[in-house]
Design a protein around this nucleic acid. Structure first.
Lengths: 352, 352
DNA sequence: CGTTATATGGAGAACGTTCTACATTCTGTG
DNA sequence: CACAGAATGTAGAACGTTCTCCATATAACG
């Protein structure tokens, strides 16, 4: 009985929509309709089909779905998985997605444009339903082109002029202003910014935005001429060397604003090693309010931009675009200051 | 000319294997053969096809590939994205994969068994070529069942008896022993372990393995009777409360081994707040040698298990299984101690 | 020159869905 | 009771690959 054999072989394998249809005694199309809860399904049919699905433990193949319709997956592209800010974003994304029938698949580009491109293309080739790009390196035109193939929301990418894709950002200019204002309020006047190395990040990156905010706030306080920005390289050996040089500089400022907690925390550590007291000799304020900054040992004042919330908003924005919106949205969150010991010795206020 | 129209419509869209075939003047099957570099392709054919692929910028659809053959994607399942150990593993995976034609897609389960299961199923439904599960929560039988559908390598999952899937681990028992031995060498005798709350992690988890190692090392030193283990809950409010209680306990030991840097660092922070001096009043040793532990400010001694290397080895193991190996492999790495200030005040040795 | 082996390329059936177009049955209405 | 229109279910063509045969052309050999 060759037919029997063939059937057994098929049954051994995967439970497909066909298996379900046969088992429920209905057509394949009917099962599909129930799955997508499309129009034209009676109570009876629905019951039969869901029953069969239950019994067989049927799961639709995402690969096959992607080939024809939606795959109910969204892709998230992370530039780097080590910066503790990014896991927060993921947590926000997952939180919102948990309530929907979508799932997130994450790619990590390690800040390499090449890999970033190929990862995005893969996600498109998987027919994912939408993409959240976190701090992408790609230029706006390229992202716009990709956005014609798949809905895209960029997080940490300041391009409010984009029409092809949405952006969700904390207001990084404002965040930097808040940091400067906090330092000014503590009475510091000679404030320097420690930013990211020259070649990292284009104009739309959060880093450059923070630089703009820093300059503006200094200008506004009449300190425009002395608003200087030092660039810290990322590569480990050069990075610490530059920081040490900064700490032992003769004309070292009394206060410093770091573009990221990552740098601020390393700076704090080196300062301790070198006998520079914080905040007495040097006040430090970071960015991201990472969990490490909150540790009593570290006690770093920081600008909080709630990565989690950014992730949540980005996800909702993406879903609304997947479900039909075509006009671009550009959303801003306002960051806030979390004051801690690196800013001011608790109890005693610094005079102006 | 309706045919023209139809062609234009199709061309507008995606460049498919058919587009390439037409453009190169060969059959679809020929293009596929070149892509997979299968047997029976002449130099001329190959040149024509690769030329057309180049010109058209053709990328095969992963969705379609998955439906029929390999998708050249491997899935990585992370239990949690916040523990800084896990990004290290990813870095290792990506490093090895960069040299191959495979790509990684990551799912984050947030330690929820439900989500973990559905993420794994999704990866199977995407017809991914293999899976790396990092510290999965699922029981061995379930993983074995899943492994019949897809090659699986489990990292941080001590089940050397598994025949259906491979495991890659640091020797967590040995790691704990090393920690205890280091504390003993510094002269401490009353040593306690701070482990993870009761309900977290089954016997095969790294945590339980470290407990076993801890007990054994204590026993071996003739301190078996006083080898006590405290469980720290994960949920934030309870967690700190328990640690505070530990720190203010009357019979607090002189030395403590924490199952993870995550806990050790929080402990260090609380100790500082509460005026418990480290290492004078309390020596601390952690696990994972995370970058935070290495900070001068934190200066936490820790067991290094090189997450990066674990990721690399796991990836190579998975690829070898994808490419045909059927017997199970169970690989062990030996961890090592990184001594720092939390263990012993630099310069002066503690007497026994 | 006939026969057999060996390369090379192509036809076409899967893979598991979605979804359009159609067939059938059931209403309600004049 | 005939008939329009709504409600319900189905057939079957995509989607873009892979991969198993097959067909042909060429080479090798007696």
């Amino acid at each position: 009985m060759p037919i029997e054999d063939k059937q057994r072989l098929q049954r051994n394998d995967r439970v497909t929509i066909r298996t379900v249809a046969t088992h429920a005694g209905v057509s394949v199309a009917a099962v599909s309709k129930v799955m997508r809860n499309a129009y034209g399904v009676s109570e009876g049919l629905r019951a039969k089909v869901t029953g069969a699905i239950e019994e067989l433990g049927y799961r639709p193949s995402r690969a096959a779905r992607g080939l024809r319709g939606r795959s109910f997956t969204i892709g998230v592209l992370l530039i780097d998985i080590r910066n503790p800010f990014l896991p927060e974003v993921i947590a926000g994304v997952n939180g919102v997605l948990a309530l929907s029938h979508y799932q997130a698949m994450i790619g990590v580009s390690d800040a390499r444009v090449q890999l970033e491109t190929s990862l995005i293309e893969s996600m498109i080739d998987y027919k994912m339903d939408g993409l959240i790009l976190v701090a992408p390196r790609l230029p706006s035109e390229i992202i716009a082109k990709l956005a014609s193939e798949i809905p895209i929301v960029a997080v940490g990418y300041h391009d409010a002029g984009a029409t092809a894709f949405d952006t969700v950002n904390a207001d990084d200019q404002r965040g930097a202003e808040i940091a400067v204002e906090a330092l000014l309020a503590c009475g510091y006047r000679d404030i320097e910014m420690l930013s990211l190395g020259e070649r990292e990040g284009h104009q739309v990156s959060v880093v450059r935005q923070r630089e703009i905010g820093f300059r503006r706030a200094m200008q506004r306080a009449g300190l425009g001429s002395s608003a200087s920005i030092s660039k810290i390289p990322i590569a480990p050996p050069k990075r610490e060397e530059t920081m040490r040089k900064f700490l032992s500089r003769e004309n070292r400022p009394r206060a410093v604003f770091c573009w990221s907690d990552l740098d601020a925390i390393t700076l704090l550590s080196l300062a301790m090693e070198m006998g520079v007291r914080v905040p007495e000799d040097l006040a430090v304020i970071g960015y991201d309010n990472s969990s490490t900054a909150a540790l009593g040992l570290v006690n770093l004042a920081s600008i909080d931009q709630s990565g989690r919330e950014l992730g949540q908003v980005a996800t909702r924005t993406l879903i609304s675009r997947i479900e039909g919106r075509t006009s671009a949205e550009h959303i801003f969150q306002i960051p806030s200051l979390v004051s801690r010991g690196s800013l001011i010795r608790s109890g005693s206020a610094k005079g102006a």
